[in-house]
Design a protein around this nucleic acid. Structure first.
Lengths: 356, 356
DNA sequence: ATTAGCACTCTAACTACCAGAGTGCCAAAA
DNA sequence: TTTTGGCACTCTGGTAGTTAGAGTGCTAAT
C-alpha cells in the first residue's frame, strides 16, 4: 500500500509501459527490450523514448536488467505494483466454474473434497496446488462408540462435527464389560455432545481428580475410559496440507535447476515454514499473493504463492492456493484460487463426515 | 540363469576383473580404464593384459565403452551377471537391525507401519522407498456396526482382519430404526464373522434375490442394509503403494536431467505400470532385482528396482523395495530390502487394526 | 601368455572471435 | 520541453580452433 502511494507519481504512460512489460515478460520469460516494448505498447513511441521511461522505472526499482545489453524484467516491487494496481483479472469462463462444481459436488467425504480441490488447482494452473486441512480447534464432539475387539483392545470411534470419523485402538489396563462400555458411551454422548474436544479433555481430567465418592460408579468408569479415548485426539493430524502437482514445477525452466528443485522439495517436506506462512493467511479472507522472497523463505525464491482462505460456517478454517514460478499468469490464477476457495468452503459446508 | 550358464565359461580372472570393474564403476560413476583396473585388481597384471581381458568382456556384451578413448562400464548383462554370480552381500550391522525394530515395533496401526517401512527404506538407502499396500483379496470380515447420524445418514464401521477399520456413510432410502440397526449388526456379526468380503457380498446378493418369504423379517432388513454397507468395500483402495523419498533421486546426477525426472515422476503418478511390475514379484519370496530396461518400462531406464515380497501368516500379501540409479550399492541394498520385508511382515503379523 | 611401446581417437576445457541485441547518451528535430 | 535518430559501447551466446589427457588397439619383443 505504501508502495502504491510511492509509485503512483508515475504518469499514465509509465504505468502502461510497465504493465505491458510485465505482461510480456510473464508470457515469454525473456527480458523485454525497448524495441519490443515500443512495438507492443501501441503508443507509437520510438524505442529511444521508451528507453528513457525504462531508465526511470529502473531507478524506481520496478524493473531491472540482468546485464547491460539485455532487456528489462520486473523486480519483486515491479510485480507487486503490477498486481496491486495494474492487473486486470480475467473473469472465469462459466464452463470452468461448472467443471469445478461437477468435480466437487458429488463428493461426500472431507478428505476427498480437499484432495480434489488441490488437484483441481494444480491441474488447472499446471502448477502445484495446496490445501491446508481445516483447522481443528473448532472440532466439536458428536458421538463416541466403543467396540471391544478382544480382551485388552477396544476400538474407539469418535464422530466429530460433520467432518470426520476418527478411529483409535486403546489398550485399557482394567477390564471393561461390554455393557459397561455401552453405558459409558451413552453417558458421554449425553453429557458432552456439541462440546469441543479440548474442553472435554479438560473437564474429564477435572472429574478424574475429584474425590471419587462424589460420583456414581457409572460416571467414574466412563471418565476413565473416555480419558484414554480422547488422548491425543486433539493434535492427531498427521498431515498439515494436501499438496498436489509438485511435478508440474519441473516444467518451468526458471525453476528447473536441480539445486532449486531440491530446496523447494525439501521445503515441501519440512512443512513447518510453509505451514507458518499459510497460517498467516488464515485471519483475513480474500486472495493474498506472495512474490518471491516476500514470503521470507529462501526456498520460495523465484516462486510466487497465491492463496486464499476458505470458510465453513462463515469462519475461516483453512487456506488453499497454488505455488508456481513468479512469472505466472496472475490474471487467470487469482480468480481460479478465489473460486476454488469459495467452492471448497461450500462443499465442506453441506457435506457430511467421512473416513479419513 | 541362462546367462550364468552362458558366461560361466569366463575364467576366474576375467570374472574377478569384471567384479572389480563393476564395483569401481558403482562407487564412482566414471568409466573404468585398464590402468585403474590394473591397480585396483591386486593381480599385478599390466594394463595391456587387462585391456585384452576387457576386450573379451566387451565382446561378450558385459561391458561397454561410451566412446573409443574412455574406460568401460557395465552393460545391463554385466550388472546382471555381477549380481547373480559375483556379488558378495554385506551382512547388516546389528545396530541397523535394532534401529529398524525400534522404529517399527511401537507402531500399532497398519498404515503407519507401512509408511514407516517405506521411510526406513528411503532414508537408509538415500533412494526412493516403496511399499505396496497388503493385498485385499484375503480381507475377512470381523464385525460391523451401524451408527445413525441423522435421518438419512448412517455411519458404517467395518472391522476387518486385524488390519484396519473402514468407515463409510450410507444414505439408505428406507428408514431404519435404531434397534433395527443393532439387530442387523448382531445378525451380520453372528453369521459372517471370519468370511471374506467377496464371498459375503455374493452371498448377500443371493439372499436378496431369493423370494423374501423364506426369510425372517430381521434377516431381510439386515441383508438390505448390509448390501449398502458392503458396496465397494472390496476395491476401496485409494492408494496402491506408499512411496517415499522420491526427492532423493534428484541427488543422483545420472538421473538428474529434468527430462528423466519428469518421466520418472509421472510414472510414479500413473502407477499402473509400476503396480503391474510389482505384482509380478508377489508370487515368489526373496529379493528380486530389475536392472534398467529389464523391467520393460522405459521410465525406469537407468534405474534399478530391488524388491522383495512380504508375508503375513506365511502368505505373501505385498511387495516392497527401493528404486534408485542402476549404479547402486547392491551389496548393501539387498540385505536392507530383505530385512525390511521380514520385519514389516512380522510387524503386521502381531499388530492390530488401525485407523487408516 | 604377458608386456612395453606407439599411433590413434575422443572428450573436455580453454581461447578467440564474431553477430546480435540492447543500452546510454548526445545532438537534432518537433 | 519532449521526442527521436544516430552512434559508440557492452554483454551474451554460439562457433571454430587448439591442446592436454585419458584410454584404446595393435604389434613386436620378452
Amino acid at each position: 500500500m505504501n508502495d502504491i502511494f510511492k509509485f503512483s507519481g508515475l504518469n499514465e504512460r509509465a504505468q502502461h509501459l510497465l504493465k505491458v512489460l510485465v505482461e510480456r515478460y510473464i508470457s515469454d520469460g525473456q527480458p523485454v527490450g525497448s524495441r519490443a516494448l515500443s512495438r507492443e505498447a501501441g503508443l507509437s513511441l520510438s524505442p529511444a523514448t521508451i528507453r528513457n521511461v525504462m531508465a526511470d522505472l529502473e531507478d524506481l526499482g520496478l524493473i531491472t536488467a540482468p546485464h547491460t545489453s539485455a532487456g528489462r524484467m520486473p523486480t519483486v516491487s515491479g510485480y507487486r505494483f503490477f498486481i496491486d494496481s495494474l492487473l486486470t483479472v480475467k473473469p472465469l469462463q462459466q464452463e470452468v466454474i461448472r467443471q469445478f462444481q461437477r468435480d466437487l459436488d458429488p463428493l461426500d467425504n472431507a478428505g476427498e473434497i480437499l484432495e480434489t480441490a488441490s488437484r483441481l488447482l494444480s491441474d488447472m494452473t499446471h502448477m502445484a496446488g495446496l490445501v491446508t486441512l481445516p483447522r481443528r480447534e473448532a472440532v466439536t464432539f458428536r458421538m463416541i462408540e466403543f467396540l471391544p475387539l478382544s480382551e485388552q483392545r477396544i476400538l474407539v470411534i469418535l464422530v466429530t462435527n460433520e467432518q470426520e470419523v476418527q478411529n483409535r485402538i486403546i489398550h485399557p489396563t482394567k477390564r471393561f464389560s461390554s455393557s459397561e462400555l455401552t453405558s459409558a458411551a451413552n453417558y458421554l454422548n449425553a453429557v458432552y455432545a456439541g462440546k469441543d474436544l479440548v474442553s472435554i479433555r479438560e473437564s474429564l481430567l477435572r472429574e478424574l481428580q475429584q474425590t471419587r465418592e462424589q460420583m456414581n460408579e457409572e460416571a467414574i468408569k466412563a471418565a476413565e475410559i473416555a480419558d484414554l479415548a480422547f488422548q491425543g485426539s486433539g493434535q492427531m493430524r498427521k498431515k498439515d496440507f494436501v499438496l498436489t502437482g509438485e511435478i508440474n514445477l519441473l516444467d518451468f525452466d526458471e525453476l528447473a535447476s536441480m539445486e532449486r528443485m531440491r530446496t523447494l522439495f525439501s521445503a515441501f517436506r519440512q512443512k513447518e515454514d510453509l505451514v507458518h506462512l499459510l497460517d498467516r493467511c488464515l485471519e483475513s479472507s480474500g486472495v493474498k499473493i506472495f512474490i518471491g522472497e516476500e514470503s521470507g523463505y529462501v526456498a520460495l525464491e523465484q516462486c510466487s504463492l497465491v492463496t486464499s482462505s476458505y470458510a465453513v460456517d462463515d469462519h475461516n478454517v483453512g487456506v488453499l492456493g497454488v505455488i508456481g514460478p513468479t512469472r505466472m499468469k496472475y490474471e487467470r490464477i487469482i480468480p481460479l484460487v478465489d473460486l476454488t476457495a469459495k467452492l471448497l468452503g461450500a462443499a465442506l459446508n453441506h457435506k457430511s463426515l467421512s473416513p479419513s
